[in-house]
Write a protein that binds this DNA or RNA. Structure first.
Lengths: 199, 199
DNA sequence: GTCTATAAAGCGATAGAC
DNA sequence: GTCTATCGCTTTATAGAC
């Protein structure tokens, strides 16, 4: 993919995080990316096509976070040996007030909300969701090797859905970030205790 | 409040559920409500003012569900004596494929998402959230009278945030409704077991 | 309070030059 | 591939009659 295309998509994520999908104007995107409006229509079919590609970018970024986290190159302090700590760290990664995290979370929430009214966006969304649930289920499985697969998946679905709910509340100003993080940590503990109780 | 004002707001919730906040056109709303565009601008300051009022309406409706449920007039089969069953029923009420439930959930999700970019909507939203959490915490307290207040509130925050996360996934087509309902039921069980374990 | 008519602006999308 | 210029539709919002 060309550099320009990527630059436009990065800019799209930035603008979406700033204005929302609803507030995304092709003109503002053009300014943000430093290109003309026409170039955007040249590279992407139309507004919806642009959104779909942006969703794919946001997905890839999120996967990259997890991958980076699992990478051997990271300092030991940032990748704990305890599988539960790793899981906690991976989930709390999305609840941080850092520009790129906020941008990703906001864009993800926006695009998911848009999918309610735009079925074209659903495929990409469902795929990302499945991958995300699977990753969390795998990490839970490392912590609780004896738990049945179905219970791991169910717990992972609850944890990821909770994360999205907490993230939405944080970003919309309903819930302070520290509370969201605390609730998430507690939830991991509660779910793991539940899985342990199944033995 | 005049009948016309209310009729317009009811129509606004319907149109938002159908098209989203971004898809809400004053003209379509006028048709839905059976009034002229100008009348909408007469009754509400502008588009944002209209949205804020609609959010208030959706809040009130949601409270009414819970109130109806708690009302003595309901058939016994619909208001179980067991506090846990009542809680389960109250939470699952939001995960039903009925037109008015879908409308309320969709409108609520849309307006919450809008609040990320429109701080004017946040006050109403935060208030509704606090009330909702408090109600769930109270019902948990009935089931687990010995659990500390702070633990009840934390559980209630997790359950309501999870409900919103599951609802968002359902409405955006990521998660089948039956799965969402199952995850919600399980979560209640897991949280109650957690509260019991604190004794 | 409610309507019709219209102003004013916003915005997606394309044509055509380079 | 990339730009400038512009078309044309949509949508918000207001003016003014009743």
């Amino acid at each position: 993919m060309s550099d320009r295309r990527t630059a436009i998509l990065e800019a799209a994520a930035t603008v979406i995080a700033r204005r929302g999908v609803r507030g995304l104007r092709v003109e503002e995107l053009a300014e943000e990316a430093g290109v003309s409006k026409a170039l955007i229509y040249y590279h992407f079919e139309d507004r919806t096509g642009l959104l779909r590609r942006t969703l794919a970018l946001v997905n890839n970024r999120a996967e990259r976070y997890t991958a980076e986290q699992a990478a051997a190159g990271q300092p030991a302090a940032e990748t704990p040996a305890d599988p539960l700590r790793r899981l906690e760290q991976a989930l709390l990664l999305e609840l941080q007030d850092l520009p790129h995290v906020r941008e990703n979370s906001t864009a993800w929430g926006e695009l998911r909300a848009s999918a309610v009214f735009d079925p074209e966006l659903r495929g990409e969304l469902a795929l990302a969701s499945v991958i995300w649930v699977r990753e969390v289920a795998d990490q839970l499985g490392e912590a609780r090797p004896t738990a049945p697969e179905s219970a791991l998946t169910a717990s992972a679905e609850r944890l990821t859905a909770l994360l999205e709910g907490l993230s939405a509340r944080w970003l919309s100003g309903i819930l302070p970030l520290t509370d969201a993080r605390t609730r998430m940590r507690e939830a991991i503990g509660v779910e793991v205790a539940h899985l342990a109780g199944l033995d």
